[in-house]
Design a protein around this nucleic acid. Structure first.
Length: 571
DNA sequence: GCCGTTTTCGGCCCGACTGTTTTCAGTCG
Protein backbone atom coordinates (compact mmCIF):
# COMPACT_ATOMS: atom_id res chain seq x y z
CA UNK A 1 0.00 0.00 0.00
CA UNK A 2 1.29 3.43 -0.86
CA UNK A 3 1.37 6.39 1.51
CA UNK A 4 -1.82 7.89 0.08
CA UNK A 5 -3.80 4.70 0.55
CA UNK A 6 -2.42 4.14 4.05
CA UNK A 7 -3.23 7.65 5.28
CA UNK A 8 -6.67 7.54 3.66
CA UNK A 9 -7.52 4.23 5.26
CA UNK A 10 -6.49 5.47 8.71
CA UNK A 11 -8.69 8.56 8.31
CA UNK A 12 -11.51 6.39 6.99
CA UNK A 13 -11.32 4.17 10.05
CA UNK A 14 -11.35 7.22 12.31
CA UNK A 15 -14.54 8.29 10.53
CA UNK A 16 -16.09 4.84 10.95
CA UNK A 17 -15.45 4.85 14.68
CA UNK A 18 -16.42 8.48 15.16
CA UNK A 19 -19.83 7.65 13.72
CA UNK A 20 -20.54 5.74 16.90
CA UNK A 21 -20.13 8.89 18.94
CA UNK A 22 -23.07 11.19 19.15
CA UNK A 23 -22.95 14.75 17.83
CA UNK A 24 -20.01 14.07 15.54
CA UNK A 25 -21.83 13.93 12.23
CA UNK A 26 -19.94 16.77 10.64
CA UNK A 27 -16.61 15.60 11.99
CA UNK A 28 -17.26 12.25 10.36
CA UNK A 29 -17.93 14.00 7.08
CA UNK A 30 -14.75 16.00 7.42
CA UNK A 31 -12.64 12.89 7.96
CA UNK A 32 -14.31 11.08 5.09
CA UNK A 33 -13.81 13.99 2.76
CA UNK A 34 -10.14 14.28 3.67
CA UNK A 35 -9.68 10.53 3.16
CA UNK A 36 -11.32 10.70 -0.22
CA UNK A 37 -9.30 13.71 -1.37
CA UNK A 38 -6.06 12.07 -0.28
CA UNK A 39 -6.80 8.77 -1.98
CA UNK A 40 -7.60 10.69 -5.19
CA UNK A 41 -4.27 12.58 -5.24
CA UNK A 42 -2.19 11.93 -8.32
CA UNK A 43 1.06 12.63 -6.49
CA UNK A 44 2.49 11.21 -3.25
CA UNK A 45 1.17 12.86 -0.09
CA UNK A 46 4.60 12.42 1.47
CA UNK A 47 5.98 14.85 -1.10
CA UNK A 48 3.37 17.43 -0.10
CA UNK A 49 4.27 16.89 3.55
CA UNK A 50 8.01 17.26 2.92
CA UNK A 51 7.41 20.49 1.04
CA UNK A 52 4.99 21.75 3.70
CA UNK A 53 2.07 21.83 1.29
CA UNK A 54 -0.39 19.54 3.05
CA UNK A 55 -2.76 22.49 3.44
CA UNK A 56 -3.24 22.49 -0.31
CA UNK A 57 -5.23 19.29 -0.09
CA UNK A 58 -8.93 20.23 0.05
CA UNK A 59 -10.59 19.13 3.25
CA UNK A 60 -7.32 19.03 5.17
CA UNK A 61 -7.21 21.69 7.87
CA UNK A 62 -5.06 22.03 10.94
CA UNK A 63 -6.38 19.08 12.94
CA UNK A 64 -6.36 16.55 10.13
CA UNK A 65 -3.03 17.83 8.84
CA UNK A 66 -1.40 17.03 12.18
CA UNK A 67 -2.87 13.55 12.09
CA UNK A 68 -1.65 12.98 8.54
CA UNK A 69 1.83 14.01 9.63
CA UNK A 70 1.71 11.60 12.57
CA UNK A 71 0.75 8.73 10.26
CA UNK A 72 3.49 9.60 7.78
CA UNK A 73 6.12 9.85 10.52
CA UNK A 74 5.19 6.91 12.72
CA UNK A 75 2.88 4.79 10.59
CA UNK A 76 0.32 5.00 13.39
CA UNK A 77 -2.22 7.38 14.88
CA UNK A 78 -2.75 7.63 18.62
CA UNK A 79 -6.17 9.20 18.14
CA UNK A 80 -7.29 6.15 16.19
CA UNK A 81 -5.94 3.82 18.88
CA UNK A 82 -7.93 5.70 21.49
CA UNK A 83 -11.08 5.32 19.44
CA UNK A 84 -10.37 1.64 18.93
CA UNK A 85 -10.15 1.22 22.69
CA UNK A 86 -13.44 2.99 23.13
CA UNK A 87 -15.48 0.81 20.73
CA UNK A 88 -15.07 -2.89 19.98
CA UNK A 89 -13.81 -3.56 16.46
CA UNK A 90 -16.74 -5.88 15.78
CA UNK A 91 -19.17 -2.97 15.90
CA UNK A 92 -17.91 -1.82 12.51
CA UNK A 93 -18.99 -5.20 11.16
CA UNK A 94 -22.38 -4.77 12.83
CA UNK A 95 -22.80 -1.48 10.97
CA UNK A 96 -22.25 -3.32 7.70
CA UNK A 97 -25.59 -5.06 8.18
CA UNK A 98 -28.21 -3.32 6.01
CA UNK A 99 -30.46 -0.95 7.98
CA UNK A 100 -28.05 -0.86 10.91
CA UNK A 101 -26.28 2.46 11.11
CA UNK A 102 -24.28 4.10 13.86
CA UNK A 103 -27.28 4.98 16.02
CA UNK A 104 -28.67 1.48 16.04
CA UNK A 105 -25.26 -0.13 16.51
CA UNK A 106 -24.54 2.23 19.39
CA UNK A 107 -27.80 1.39 21.14
CA UNK A 108 -27.37 -2.36 20.63
CA UNK A 109 -23.91 -2.03 22.14
CA UNK A 110 -25.00 0.06 25.12
CA UNK A 111 -28.23 -1.73 25.90
CA UNK A 112 -27.53 -5.33 24.88
CA UNK A 113 -23.71 -5.44 24.92
CA UNK A 114 -23.70 -6.45 21.25
CA UNK A 115 -20.07 -6.14 20.15
CA UNK A 116 -19.94 -8.19 16.94
CA UNK A 117 -21.99 -10.09 14.38
CA UNK A 118 -22.17 -13.23 16.51
CA UNK A 119 -23.65 -11.27 19.42
CA UNK A 120 -26.07 -9.60 17.06
CA UNK A 121 -27.30 -12.89 15.64
CA UNK A 122 -27.73 -14.35 19.13
CA UNK A 123 -29.61 -11.28 20.35
CA UNK A 124 -31.99 -11.44 17.39
CA UNK A 125 -32.53 -15.18 17.68
CA UNK A 126 -33.22 -14.94 21.39
CA UNK A 127 -35.73 -12.13 20.74
CA UNK A 128 -33.89 -9.70 22.97
CA UNK A 129 -33.88 -6.95 20.36
CA UNK A 130 -37.66 -6.61 20.24
CA UNK A 131 -37.59 -5.74 23.95
CA UNK A 132 -35.92 -2.41 23.20
CA UNK A 133 -38.02 0.68 22.75
CA UNK A 134 -38.57 1.40 19.08
CA UNK A 135 -37.64 -2.10 17.92
CA UNK A 136 -40.02 -4.89 17.00
CA UNK A 137 -40.41 -8.32 15.54
CA UNK A 138 -39.92 -7.15 12.00
CA UNK A 139 -36.59 -5.55 12.87
CA UNK A 140 -35.28 -8.81 14.27
CA UNK A 141 -36.33 -10.62 11.13
CA UNK A 142 -34.63 -8.02 8.93
CA UNK A 143 -31.46 -8.12 10.98
CA UNK A 144 -31.16 -11.90 10.61
CA UNK A 145 -31.82 -11.56 6.90
CA UNK A 146 -29.23 -8.79 6.69
CA UNK A 147 -26.60 -10.95 8.40
CA UNK A 148 -27.24 -13.78 5.93
CA UNK A 149 -26.96 -11.32 3.06
CA UNK A 150 -23.71 -9.94 4.42
CA UNK A 151 -22.25 -13.42 4.70
CA UNK A 152 -23.33 -14.46 1.22
CA UNK A 153 -22.26 -11.45 -0.79
CA UNK A 154 -18.76 -11.14 -2.06
CA UNK A 155 -18.28 -7.41 -2.18
CA UNK A 156 -18.59 -5.35 -5.30
CA UNK A 157 -18.89 -6.75 -8.79
CA UNK A 158 -16.75 -5.87 -11.77
CA UNK A 159 -17.93 -3.21 -14.17
CA UNK A 160 -17.72 -5.78 -16.96
CA UNK A 161 -20.11 -8.02 -15.00
CA UNK A 162 -22.62 -5.32 -14.12
CA UNK A 163 -22.74 -3.48 -17.43
CA UNK A 164 -24.29 -6.20 -19.64
CA UNK A 165 -26.77 -7.03 -16.86
CA UNK A 166 -27.80 -3.40 -16.49
CA UNK A 167 -28.14 -3.02 -20.24
CA UNK A 168 -30.31 -6.15 -20.42
CA UNK A 169 -32.69 -4.74 -17.80
CA UNK A 170 -32.75 -1.41 -19.58
CA UNK A 171 -33.72 -3.31 -22.74
CA UNK A 172 -36.39 -5.23 -20.84
CA UNK A 173 -38.04 -1.91 -19.92
CA UNK A 174 -37.61 -0.41 -23.38
CA UNK A 175 -39.20 -3.39 -25.11
CA UNK A 176 -42.27 -2.89 -22.96
CA UNK A 177 -42.81 0.67 -24.00
CA UNK A 178 -40.72 2.67 -21.55
CA UNK A 179 -38.63 4.92 -23.77
CA UNK A 180 -37.13 7.13 -21.09
CA UNK A 181 -34.77 4.67 -19.42
CA UNK A 182 -31.20 5.04 -18.26
CA UNK A 183 -28.64 3.35 -16.08
CA UNK A 184 -27.61 5.48 -13.13
CA UNK A 185 -25.23 5.36 -10.19
CA UNK A 186 -21.69 4.05 -10.32
CA UNK A 187 -22.58 1.92 -13.35
CA UNK A 188 -23.39 5.01 -15.42
CA UNK A 189 -20.19 6.60 -14.10
CA UNK A 190 -18.40 3.41 -15.19
CA UNK A 191 -16.50 2.85 -11.96
CA UNK A 192 -14.26 -0.22 -12.03
CA UNK A 193 -16.45 -1.98 -9.50
CA UNK A 194 -20.18 -1.62 -8.88
CA UNK A 195 -22.21 -2.20 -5.74
CA UNK A 196 -25.82 -2.15 -6.97
CA UNK A 197 -27.29 -1.57 -10.40
CA UNK A 198 -29.41 1.59 -10.60
CA UNK A 199 -32.04 2.12 -13.27
CA UNK A 200 -34.15 5.21 -13.82
CA UNK A 201 -37.42 5.36 -15.73
CA UNK A 202 -39.27 8.49 -16.77
CA UNK A 203 -42.96 7.67 -17.06
CA UNK A 204 -46.41 8.76 -15.96
CA UNK A 205 -47.28 5.10 -15.43
CA UNK A 206 -45.28 4.41 -12.28
CA UNK A 207 -47.36 1.43 -11.25
CA UNK A 208 -46.98 -0.32 -14.59
CA UNK A 209 -43.24 0.46 -14.61
CA UNK A 210 -42.88 -1.23 -11.20
CA UNK A 211 -44.85 -4.26 -12.36
CA UNK A 212 -42.74 -4.52 -15.49
CA UNK A 213 -39.58 -4.25 -13.47
CA UNK A 214 -40.41 -6.95 -10.92
CA UNK A 215 -41.62 -9.22 -13.74
CA UNK A 216 -38.09 -9.34 -15.13
CA UNK A 217 -37.53 -13.09 -15.57
CA UNK A 218 -34.30 -13.12 -13.55
CA UNK A 219 -35.90 -11.55 -10.47
CA UNK A 220 -35.31 -13.71 -7.40
CA UNK A 221 -36.72 -11.51 -4.66
CA UNK A 222 -38.43 -8.15 -4.26
CA UNK A 223 -36.60 -6.32 -1.49
CA UNK A 224 -38.61 -3.15 -1.31
CA UNK A 225 -41.53 -1.72 -3.16
CA UNK A 226 -42.85 1.80 -2.90
CA UNK A 227 -44.63 4.25 -5.16
CA UNK A 228 -41.55 5.58 -6.89
CA UNK A 229 -38.82 3.19 -5.83
CA UNK A 230 -38.46 -0.57 -6.05
CA UNK A 231 -35.51 -2.88 -5.36
CA UNK A 232 -35.05 -6.47 -6.46
CA UNK A 233 -32.35 -9.07 -6.07
CA UNK A 234 -31.72 -10.99 -9.28
CA UNK A 235 -30.95 -14.68 -9.44
CA UNK A 236 -27.23 -14.00 -9.77
CA UNK A 237 -27.33 -12.09 -6.49
CA UNK A 238 -27.21 -8.57 -7.92
CA UNK A 239 -29.34 -5.91 -6.28
CA UNK A 240 -31.11 -3.62 -8.74
CA UNK A 241 -32.82 -0.41 -7.65
CA UNK A 242 -35.34 1.21 -9.95
CA UNK A 243 -36.76 4.66 -9.55
CA UNK A 244 -39.66 6.08 -11.55
CA UNK A 245 -40.32 9.80 -11.99
CA UNK A 246 -42.53 11.88 -14.26
CA UNK A 247 -41.01 12.55 -17.69
CA UNK A 248 -40.79 16.26 -16.86
CA UNK A 249 -38.39 15.38 -14.00
CA UNK A 250 -36.33 12.78 -15.84
CA UNK A 251 -33.25 14.96 -16.28
CA UNK A 252 -33.18 16.09 -12.66
CA UNK A 253 -33.72 12.54 -11.46
CA UNK A 254 -30.99 11.23 -13.75
CA UNK A 255 -28.60 13.86 -12.44
CA UNK A 256 -29.49 12.97 -8.86
CA UNK A 257 -29.47 9.23 -9.44
CA UNK A 258 -26.13 9.22 -11.25
CA UNK A 259 -24.14 10.83 -8.46
CA UNK A 260 -21.55 10.65 -7.29
CA UNK A 261 -22.84 11.67 -3.92
CA UNK A 262 -19.90 14.05 -3.55
CA UNK A 263 -20.53 15.59 -6.95
CA UNK A 264 -24.19 16.13 -6.07
CA UNK A 265 -23.44 17.65 -2.70
CA UNK A 266 -21.20 20.17 -4.39
CA UNK A 267 -23.74 20.94 -7.12
CA UNK A 268 -26.53 21.41 -4.57
CA UNK A 269 -24.39 23.56 -2.32
CA UNK A 270 -23.57 25.72 -5.30
CA UNK A 271 -27.27 25.86 -6.18
CA UNK A 272 -28.07 27.13 -2.70
CA UNK A 273 -25.55 29.91 -3.06
CA UNK A 274 -27.19 30.91 -6.34
CA UNK A 275 -30.65 30.91 -4.77
CA UNK A 276 -31.88 27.57 -6.09
CA UNK A 277 -32.88 24.26 -4.59
CA UNK A 278 -32.04 21.07 -6.46
CA UNK A 279 -33.74 17.73 -5.88
CA UNK A 280 -34.62 14.76 -8.08
CA UNK A 281 -37.70 16.56 -9.42
CA UNK A 282 -36.03 19.65 -10.71
CA UNK A 283 -34.27 22.92 -10.04
CA UNK A 284 -36.44 25.32 -8.05
CA UNK A 285 -36.03 29.03 -7.31
CA UNK A 286 -35.77 29.38 -3.55
CA UNK A 287 -37.62 32.69 -3.49
CA UNK A 288 -40.93 31.50 -4.95
CA UNK A 289 -40.48 27.73 -5.41
CA UNK A 290 -40.84 28.10 -9.19
CA UNK A 291 -39.43 25.16 -11.17
CA UNK A 292 -36.85 26.34 -13.68
CA UNK A 293 -35.43 23.05 -15.04
CA UNK A 294 -35.78 19.28 -14.83
CA UNK A 295 -36.62 17.65 -18.14
CA UNK A 296 -33.06 17.00 -19.26
CA UNK A 297 -29.73 16.87 -17.48
CA UNK A 298 -28.41 19.60 -19.76
CA UNK A 299 -31.23 21.89 -18.55
CA UNK A 300 -30.38 21.18 -14.93
CA UNK A 301 -26.72 22.08 -15.28
CA UNK A 302 -27.58 25.00 -17.55
CA UNK A 303 -29.99 26.47 -15.01
CA UNK A 304 -27.13 26.56 -12.53
CA UNK A 305 -24.81 28.24 -15.01
CA UNK A 306 -22.87 25.03 -15.52
CA UNK A 307 -21.71 23.03 -18.47
CA UNK A 308 -23.04 19.46 -18.68
CA UNK A 309 -20.53 17.06 -17.12
CA UNK A 310 -19.99 13.56 -18.54
CA UNK A 311 -21.06 10.96 -15.93
CA UNK A 312 -17.58 9.40 -15.85
CA UNK A 313 -16.19 12.70 -14.57
CA UNK A 314 -18.69 13.31 -11.74
CA UNK A 315 -16.47 12.44 -8.81
CA UNK A 316 -15.90 15.89 -7.32
CA UNK A 317 -12.33 16.04 -8.56
CA UNK A 318 -12.60 19.63 -9.73
CA UNK A 319 -15.16 19.12 -12.49
CA UNK A 320 -17.86 21.21 -10.78
CA UNK A 321 -15.63 24.26 -10.64
CA UNK A 322 -14.60 23.78 -14.28
CA UNK A 323 -18.20 23.28 -15.37
CA UNK A 324 -19.05 26.60 -13.77
CA UNK A 325 -16.42 28.27 -15.89
CA UNK A 326 -17.48 26.35 -18.98
CA UNK A 327 -14.10 24.64 -19.08
CA UNK A 328 -14.83 20.95 -18.67
CA UNK A 329 -12.05 19.33 -20.72
CA UNK A 330 -13.00 17.03 -23.57
CA UNK A 331 -12.09 13.48 -22.62
CA UNK A 332 -11.76 10.50 -24.94
CA UNK A 333 -14.92 8.62 -25.90
CA UNK A 334 -15.55 5.34 -27.69
CA UNK A 335 -16.14 7.12 -31.00
CA UNK A 336 -12.61 8.55 -30.86
CA UNK A 337 -11.09 5.08 -30.96
CA UNK A 338 -9.74 4.13 -34.40
CA UNK A 339 -8.37 0.69 -33.63
CA UNK A 340 -7.17 -1.88 -31.11
CA UNK A 341 -3.46 -2.43 -30.54
CA UNK A 342 -3.40 -5.46 -28.24
CA UNK A 343 -5.31 -8.62 -29.19
CA UNK A 344 -4.68 -12.35 -29.41
CA UNK A 345 -5.45 -15.02 -31.99
CA UNK A 346 -5.59 -18.78 -31.83
CA UNK A 347 -1.87 -18.79 -32.59
CA UNK A 348 -1.20 -18.25 -28.87
CA UNK A 349 -3.94 -18.39 -26.21
CA UNK A 350 -6.77 -16.71 -28.11
CA UNK A 351 -9.63 -18.78 -29.45
CA UNK A 352 -10.49 -17.05 -32.73
CA UNK A 353 -8.62 -16.88 -36.03
CA UNK A 354 -6.88 -13.80 -37.35
CA UNK A 355 -9.54 -13.70 -40.05
CA UNK A 356 -12.36 -13.67 -37.50
CA UNK A 357 -10.68 -11.02 -35.36
CA UNK A 358 -10.12 -8.83 -38.40
CA UNK A 359 -13.75 -9.18 -39.52
CA UNK A 360 -15.02 -8.34 -36.02
CA UNK A 361 -12.76 -5.30 -35.77
CA UNK A 362 -13.94 -4.12 -39.16
CA UNK A 363 -17.54 -4.53 -38.04
CA UNK A 364 -16.77 -2.25 -35.09
CA UNK A 365 -15.71 0.40 -37.58
CA UNK A 366 -12.03 0.24 -36.71
CA UNK A 367 -9.41 1.36 -39.21
CA UNK A 368 -6.79 -1.00 -37.84
CA UNK A 369 -6.16 -3.96 -35.56
CA UNK A 370 -2.92 -5.30 -34.13
CA UNK A 371 -2.49 -9.02 -33.56
CA UNK A 372 -0.13 -9.32 -30.62
CA UNK A 373 0.21 -12.93 -29.58
CA UNK A 374 2.33 -13.97 -26.61
CA UNK A 375 6.08 -14.51 -26.89
CA UNK A 376 7.97 -17.75 -26.36
CA UNK A 377 8.64 -17.62 -22.61
CA UNK A 378 4.98 -17.45 -21.72
CA UNK A 379 4.46 -21.16 -22.06
CA UNK A 380 1.15 -21.09 -20.18
CA UNK A 381 -0.09 -18.68 -22.85
CA UNK A 382 1.18 -20.92 -25.68
CA UNK A 383 3.78 -18.29 -26.52
CA UNK A 384 5.18 -18.22 -30.03
CA UNK A 385 8.74 -19.34 -30.75
CA UNK A 386 10.68 -17.12 -33.15
CA UNK A 387 9.85 -19.56 -35.93
CA UNK A 388 6.15 -19.63 -35.17
CA UNK A 389 6.16 -15.83 -34.94
CA UNK A 390 7.62 -15.65 -38.47
CA UNK A 391 4.92 -18.00 -39.72
CA UNK A 392 2.29 -15.94 -37.96
CA UNK A 393 3.64 -12.75 -39.53
CA UNK A 394 3.27 -14.32 -42.97
CA UNK A 395 -0.28 -15.38 -42.15
CA UNK A 396 -1.32 -11.95 -40.89
CA UNK A 397 0.18 -10.39 -44.04
CA UNK A 398 -1.93 -12.63 -46.24
CA UNK A 399 -5.12 -11.86 -44.31
CA UNK A 400 -4.29 -8.17 -44.51
CA UNK A 401 -4.13 -8.40 -48.31
CA UNK A 402 -7.49 -10.20 -48.44
CA UNK A 403 -9.19 -7.57 -46.31
CA UNK A 404 -8.92 -4.10 -47.77
CA UNK A 405 -11.41 -2.78 -45.21
CA UNK A 406 -8.97 -2.85 -42.32
CA UNK A 407 -5.25 -2.50 -41.73
CA UNK A 408 -3.73 -5.34 -39.74
CA UNK A 409 -0.62 -4.68 -37.71
CA UNK A 410 1.76 -7.51 -37.02
CA UNK A 411 2.90 -7.38 -33.44
CA UNK A 412 3.72 -9.21 -30.26
CA UNK A 413 2.97 -9.05 -26.58
CA UNK A 414 6.54 -9.70 -25.62
CA UNK A 415 7.62 -10.89 -22.18
CA UNK A 416 9.77 -8.59 -20.08
CA UNK A 417 12.32 -10.73 -18.24
CA UNK A 418 13.38 -10.01 -14.69
CA UNK A 419 16.13 -7.64 -15.76
CA UNK A 420 13.99 -5.73 -18.23
CA UNK A 421 15.18 -7.62 -21.30
CA UNK A 422 12.79 -8.78 -24.02
CA UNK A 423 11.93 -12.26 -25.16
CA UNK A 424 12.86 -11.94 -28.85
CA UNK A 425 16.09 -10.74 -30.48
CA UNK A 426 16.12 -7.06 -31.54
CA UNK A 427 16.23 -7.90 -35.24
CA UNK A 428 12.96 -9.77 -34.99
CA UNK A 429 11.30 -7.00 -32.96
CA UNK A 430 12.40 -4.43 -35.54
CA UNK A 431 10.49 -6.29 -38.24
CA UNK A 432 7.22 -6.06 -36.33
CA UNK A 433 4.78 -3.18 -36.73
CA UNK A 434 4.14 -2.88 -33.02
CA UNK A 435 5.69 -4.22 -29.84
CA UNK A 436 3.60 -4.41 -26.68
CA UNK A 437 5.81 -5.30 -23.72
CA UNK A 438 4.41 -7.01 -20.62
CA UNK A 439 5.32 -8.53 -17.27
CA UNK A 440 3.72 -11.89 -16.47
CA UNK A 441 6.28 -13.35 -14.07
CA UNK A 442 8.25 -12.60 -10.91
CA UNK A 443 5.66 -10.19 -9.49
CA UNK A 444 7.15 -10.00 -6.04
CA UNK A 445 10.50 -8.40 -6.77
CA UNK A 446 11.80 -5.62 -4.53
CA UNK A 447 10.20 -2.33 -5.65
CA UNK A 448 13.54 -0.85 -6.72
CA UNK A 449 14.26 -3.88 -8.89
CA UNK A 450 10.80 -3.82 -10.43
CA UNK A 451 11.20 -0.13 -11.22
CA UNK A 452 14.55 -0.85 -12.91
CA UNK A 453 12.98 -3.72 -14.81
CA UNK A 454 10.14 -1.59 -16.19
CA UNK A 455 12.33 1.46 -16.89
CA UNK A 456 14.76 -0.76 -18.82
CA UNK A 457 11.90 -2.27 -20.81
CA UNK A 458 10.29 1.03 -21.82
CA UNK A 459 13.73 2.41 -22.68
CA UNK A 460 14.15 -0.34 -25.27
CA UNK A 461 13.92 1.34 -28.66
CA UNK A 462 11.69 -1.40 -30.07
CA UNK A 463 8.94 -1.07 -27.46
CA UNK A 464 5.82 0.95 -28.31
CA UNK A 465 3.40 0.11 -25.50
CA UNK A 466 3.77 -1.02 -21.89
CA UNK A 467 0.89 -3.45 -21.32
CA UNK A 468 -1.16 -3.53 -18.08
CA UNK A 469 1.57 -1.59 -16.24
CA UNK A 470 0.76 -2.53 -12.63
CA UNK A 471 -0.32 -6.14 -13.14
CA UNK A 472 -3.22 -5.82 -10.73
CA UNK A 473 -6.22 -8.13 -10.89
CA UNK A 474 -9.19 -6.42 -9.26
CA UNK A 475 -10.30 -8.26 -6.16
CA UNK A 476 -7.54 -10.85 -6.49
CA UNK A 477 -4.13 -9.28 -6.33
CA UNK A 478 -2.63 -5.85 -5.95
CA UNK A 479 -0.31 -4.63 -8.63
CA UNK A 480 3.41 -5.13 -8.18
CA UNK A 481 5.22 -2.43 -6.22
CA UNK A 482 7.35 0.02 -8.13
CA UNK A 483 7.89 3.73 -8.64
CA UNK A 484 5.14 4.71 -11.08
CA UNK A 485 6.48 8.27 -11.42
CA UNK A 486 9.83 7.04 -12.71
CA UNK A 487 8.32 4.53 -15.11
CA UNK A 488 5.96 7.17 -16.51
CA UNK A 489 8.84 9.58 -16.96
CA UNK A 490 10.85 6.91 -18.79
CA UNK A 491 7.85 6.08 -20.98
CA UNK A 492 7.45 9.74 -21.84
CA UNK A 493 11.16 10.19 -22.59
CA UNK A 494 11.11 7.19 -24.92
CA UNK A 495 7.80 7.86 -26.66
CA UNK A 496 6.23 4.72 -25.19
CA UNK A 497 2.50 4.65 -24.47
CA UNK A 498 1.19 3.32 -21.17
CA UNK A 499 -1.67 0.91 -21.70
CA UNK A 500 -5.13 1.08 -20.27
CA UNK A 501 -5.93 -2.61 -20.49
CA UNK A 502 -9.69 -2.78 -20.93
CA UNK A 503 -10.16 -6.26 -19.46
CA UNK A 504 -12.73 -5.89 -16.65
CA UNK A 505 -10.45 -7.67 -14.17
CA UNK A 506 -7.54 -5.37 -15.01
CA UNK A 507 -8.53 -1.80 -15.98
CA UNK A 508 -4.84 -1.15 -15.66
CA UNK A 509 -3.87 1.73 -15.73
CA UNK A 510 -6.65 2.70 -13.32
CA UNK A 511 -8.59 5.95 -13.62
CA UNK A 512 -6.28 7.55 -11.07
CA UNK A 513 -3.15 6.46 -12.90
CA UNK A 514 -4.72 7.83 -16.09
CA UNK A 515 -5.04 11.20 -14.38
CA UNK A 516 -1.42 10.91 -13.32
CA UNK A 517 -0.33 10.15 -16.90
CA UNK A 518 -2.41 13.03 -18.26
CA UNK A 519 -0.87 15.50 -15.84
CA UNK A 520 2.60 14.33 -16.82
CA UNK A 521 2.00 14.28 -20.57
CA UNK A 522 2.45 10.52 -20.96
CA UNK A 523 0.68 8.92 -23.96
CA UNK A 524 -2.00 6.30 -23.35
CA UNK A 525 -3.01 3.31 -25.44
CA UNK A 526 -6.43 1.81 -24.69
CA UNK A 527 -6.54 -1.84 -25.70
CA UNK A 528 -9.00 -4.69 -25.28
CA UNK A 529 -6.46 -7.51 -24.87
CA UNK A 530 -9.23 -9.57 -26.50
CA UNK A 531 -8.76 -13.34 -26.61
CA UNK A 532 -11.90 -13.80 -28.74
CA UNK A 533 -14.05 -11.61 -30.96
CA UNK A 534 -16.60 -10.76 -28.27
CA UNK A 535 -13.94 -9.38 -25.98
CA UNK A 536 -13.13 -6.65 -28.49
CA UNK A 537 -16.19 -4.97 -26.92
CA UNK A 538 -14.30 -4.59 -23.66
CA UNK A 539 -12.80 -1.49 -25.25
CA UNK A 540 -15.67 0.54 -23.77
CA UNK A 541 -14.49 -0.20 -20.22
CA UNK A 542 -10.97 0.95 -20.99
CA UNK A 543 -12.19 4.11 -22.69
CA UNK A 544 -14.44 4.88 -19.71
CA UNK A 545 -11.48 4.41 -17.36
CA UNK A 546 -9.39 6.86 -19.37
CA UNK A 547 -12.33 9.24 -19.45
CA UNK A 548 -12.59 9.01 -15.67
CA UNK A 549 -8.96 10.18 -15.67
CA UNK A 550 -9.90 13.06 -18.02
CA UNK A 551 -7.54 11.80 -20.73
CA UNK A 552 -8.08 13.85 -23.90
CA UNK A 553 -8.22 12.04 -27.26
CA UNK A 554 -5.02 13.75 -28.37
CA UNK A 555 -3.11 11.75 -25.76
CA UNK A 556 -4.47 8.39 -26.91
CA UNK A 557 -2.31 6.47 -29.35
CA UNK A 558 -5.13 4.46 -30.86
CA UNK A 559 -7.29 7.53 -31.33
CA UNK A 560 -4.88 8.38 -34.15
CA UNK A 561 -6.28 7.74 -37.63
CA UNK A 562 -4.43 5.06 -39.58
CA UNK A 563 -2.11 7.35 -41.55
CA UNK A 564 -1.03 9.22 -38.43
CA UNK A 565 -0.50 6.00 -36.53
CA UNK A 566 1.56 4.57 -39.36
CA UNK A 567 3.73 7.64 -39.34
CA UNK A 568 4.10 7.48 -35.57
CA UNK A 569 5.11 3.82 -35.61
CA UNK A 570 7.29 4.33 -38.67
CA UNK A 571 5.77 1.48 -40.68
C1' DG B 1 -13.50 19.31 11.44
C1' DC B 2 -13.55 22.41 7.44
C1' DC B 3 -14.57 26.59 5.18
C1' DG B 4 -15.72 31.66 3.30
C1' DT B 5 -16.88 37.14 -4.51
C1' DT B 6 -22.08 37.74 1.89
C1' DT B 7 -19.04 34.81 6.63
C1' DT B 8 -13.13 33.57 11.21
C1' DC B 9 -18.80 31.77 13.30
C1' DG B 10 -22.46 29.16 11.89
C1' DG B 11 -23.43 26.74 8.63
C1' DC B 12 -22.60 21.94 6.33
C1' DC B 13 -27.78 18.28 0.05
C1' DC B 14 -32.12 16.18 -0.12
C1' DG B 15 -35.95 12.99 -0.27
C1' DA B 16 -37.94 7.92 -0.18
C1' DC B 17 -38.88 4.15 2.52
C1' DT B 18 -39.32 1.33 6.77
C1' DG B 19 -40.74 0.08 11.25
C1' DT B 20 -42.57 1.58 14.90
C1' DT B 21 -44.92 4.70 15.91
C1' DT B 22 -49.70 8.38 16.35
C1' DT B 23 -45.54 12.21 14.21
C1' DC B 24 -40.82 10.54 13.45
C1' DA B 25 -35.98 8.82 13.69
C1' DG B 26 -32.85 6.15 11.31
C1' DT B 27 -30.93 4.49 7.16
C1' DC B 28 -29.84 4.69 2.51
C1' DG B 29 -28.39 6.41 -1.87
Amino acid sequence: MGDNARVASVLEEVADLLELKEDSFFQVRAYRRAAREISALTGDIRDLYVRGHLDQVPGVGKAIRDKVIEVLRTGELQYLKDLQNEFPAGLLQVMQVPDIGPKTAGRLYKELRVTNLQDLRAAAEQHRIRMLKGFGERTEYNILKGIRYLESRQGRMLLGYAYPRGKALEEHMRERGFDLVSLGGSLRRMKETIGDIDILVGSSEAERAMDTFVSYPLTAEVLLRGETKTSIRSQDGVQVDMRVVAPSSFGAALQYFTGSKEHNVKVRTLANELGYKVNEYGVFRSSDGEKVAGETEEDVYDALGMQWVPPEMREDRGEVELARKGQVPRAVTLSDICGDLHTHSEASDGVDTVEAMAAAAEALGYEYLAITDHSRSLTVGNGLSAERLLESMEHVRRVNEDRPGIHLLIGTEVEIDERGGLDYPPKLLEDLDIVVAAVHSRFKMAPEDMTERLVTAVSNENVNVLAHPTGRIIGEREGYSFDMERVMQAAKDNGVAMEVNAFPERLDLSDLHCAMARERGVAISINSDAHNVRQLDHMRYGVATAKRGWVPPEMVLNALPWEALRKHLDI
